[in-house]
Amino acid sequence: MSKDIIATIKENVIQGRKTQGDVGIDDSLAGTPGVVELLQQALKSNVSPQVIISEGLTAGMQVVGEKFSTKEYFIPDMLASAEAVGAAMDIMKPVLESANVETKGKFAIATVKGDIHDIGKNIVAILLKGAGYEVHDLGIDVPTEKVVEFVKEEKPGYLGLSALLTTTMTEMGVVIKALEENKLRSSVKVLIGGAAVSEEFAQEIGADAYCVNAFDAVKVLEGY
């Protein structure tokens, strides 16, 4: 029974069906429960959260990643799956906390001060959530002080900064300086991205990594 439900969760992740009402990649599962409903059933029947994550959600996402790299899936497919996993992680958060299960970690993300571009940042947030990170989206045009305060209070292991303008990318350096001044720099890995920035720029301002896109971010994080 638990094997069945986990296999079905995995299948629904591959299909990108968050809830019963969602269309999948095809009609084969139409009308049947989606990841959220299945997860609730599974938790009710005491299936281990670790097993749900590793054999259902993560295993499903892995297949999705493969399908994306062979061009069978497009970005909207990938995001639908990631959103389904993200919703599942939200539901499981209290369960995991009470069971003292370690998550992949907290990831804070923000578009820096002066910049309102958020499409790329949102995609990164959805995908990382789907990859199992606890994502905190601080929004757009976020002042440096607010970022620093969040790092101080919430202690995320990772901080993602997005900037699309050559005029706002310098804000990223300002954030890193401020983290140093507040003795927080070593507590957090800083990843940057956005059309304006580059590998060289990341080195110049002392960021830990530059990510070309959201998949790159998943890869970089896996390396830590």
């Binding site: 990108g16 269309v23 990649i25 497009f74 970005i75 909207p76 497919d77 995001l79 639908a80 959103e83 958020d118 499409i119 949102n122 995609i123 947030a125 959805i126 989206d137």
Partner: peptide, 15 residues
């Protein structure tokens, strides 16, 4: 929604 993206609505017409 908070993200204000229509991406989720692409899928029904994607294929």
């Amino acid at each position: 929604t908070s993200q204000k993206l229509y991406i989720g609505h692409i899928r029904p017409v994607l294929r």
